[in-house]
Design a protein around this nucleic acid. Sequence first.
DNA 1: CCAAAAGTGTTCTGACTACACCCATGC
DNA 2: GCATGGGTGTAGTCAGAACACTTTTGG
Lengths: 208, 208
Amino acid sequence: MSTAVVVTIFTVVRNRLSVLLIERSEKPFQGIWALPGGLLQPGETLDDAATRKLQEETGLQDVFLEQLYTFDNLAQTKTETTVAYFALIHDADAKLRQELEWKPEWFPLSTLKALAFDNQIILENAKDRLRSKLEYTNIAYSVLPESFTLSEMQHVYEAITEEPLDKRNFRKKIVSLGIVQETGRLKKQGAHRPAKLYKFMNRTQTVI
Amino acid sequence: MSTAVVVTIFTVVRNRLSVLLIERSEKPFQGIWALPGGLLQPGETLDDAATRKLQEETGLQDVFLEQLYTFDNLAQTKTETTVAYFALIHDADAKLRQELEWKPEWFPLSTLKALAFDNQIILENAKDRLRSKLEYTNIAYSVLPESFTLSEMQHVYEAITEEPLDKRNFRKKIVSLGIVQETGRLKKQGAHRPAKLYKFMNRTQTVI
DNA sequence: CCAAAAGTGTTCTGACTACACCCATGC
DNA sequence: GCATGGGTGTAGTCAGAACACTTTTGG
C-alpha cells in the first residue's frame, strides 16, 4: 500500500506532438514501453516526486508541470494509488538519460504501440488536458524556445490540436491577445524571407 | 502512510451556495468544522470511498461527484495523501445524518469560519472548479429538482457565480443551448404570474 | 388596485471565419 | 528566375451585452 507518481512528458518534435516513454527492463510488463514513474521516496511530497522524475529523465527543472489525476488499481501490483502529472517541454532543452536499460525515447502520439499498466488511459487524459489548456492559457511557451517566429508557434498549435489553422487569423489572434512581443530582428535561415522574432511576455502559466 | 478521501459537497440553499461541514468531536481539530472525509477501507477504490462518504452524510447516490485534486501533508497526521472530490446536489434530496457528535450542517460560503486541516485550500479549489464547470457543462441539473422554472435556474447560476445575470439574456441562452425542455404546465404558487416548467434533456454531465 | 415575479425583442459590439496575393531570400 | 516560406487586410456572420415594459396572479 503505497503511492506512486507517473509523469506524461510532452514535447513537439518536428511538428509532431510526442511523449517520452521508457522501455521497461523488469517485470511486470518487461520490454513494454511505459510512462516514467516510480514510488514516492520517504519525506517527499507528490510535487517533489514528479519534479524529480522529470529531472531524472530530461534534466529539466522549472518547466511546466502540473498534477493531472489520481488513479487506483493500476495494474495488479500492490501500488494503491498513482498520482499522474503532465509536463510540457521544449525538446531541444531536454537531455535524455543515455542508458542501455530503461532508456527513454520520444514517440509521436500517432505511432504509439501498446503501453504498460493503465498508461494508455493516463495518456489520453493528459492529451485532453493539454489541448484544453492550450485554448485558454499561454502554455505554448513551454514548448517554444525563448525566441521564435509566429510560424513556429502556429506549427506547435497545429501539432497539439491536430487541426490546421489559418495563418492570418492565427497571427491576428496571437498578436491581439498581447501575450507575445516582437523582439530583436530578422534572422536568415533558408531560401525564404527572413522572419520576425517574438518572445512571450510571460514564461509562466497565465490564463488568456 | 495511508490514503484518505475528502468530499466537498455543494448545494444551493435559499439562493446561497453552501457547503456541508461536520464539527469534529475528536482531536486533532476537535470542535472545528471540517469537510467530510476519512480513510479508504480495505479493498475500496478512491471513487468507492468518495461515493460512500457522500452517501453516509447525505443519503444520496448517483449524483454528480468527481475527483478534484490530490493533496499531501494535510495537517500533521500520518495520512500521506488526501484525494479530494467534489459533489453538487439538490438540497431537498439530502437527508443529513442526525447525530449529536459529528453532526453535519450546511454553511453558506459567505459565513464560513476557520476550517480544520487544509480544508480551506480544498474548498477554494472546489469552488473554482465548480464555477468553471458551470460555464461549459450542464451540471446545474445537479442542484435543481426534476422540474423547475427558468427563474429558479437563474438563481442557481447567480448563487454559484456570485454575479447577477440579465434575465432576458439568460433565458435566451439556455433555451438556445437546447439543454432544457418545456414540460408540463404552469403552476400556481404565490402572488405572481404562473411560470413555465422546464426539465433537463440530460441528467448526466454533458459539455455544452 | 397594488405588490410580486414571469415573460418577452431589438440594437450594438467584438470575436471568429473565410479567403488570395506579394515579398525577401538562396540557389 | 524560380522555389520556399513570410507577411498582410477585408467582409461576413454569430454570440454576447445592454436595456424596459407588459402580464398574471393573490391579497
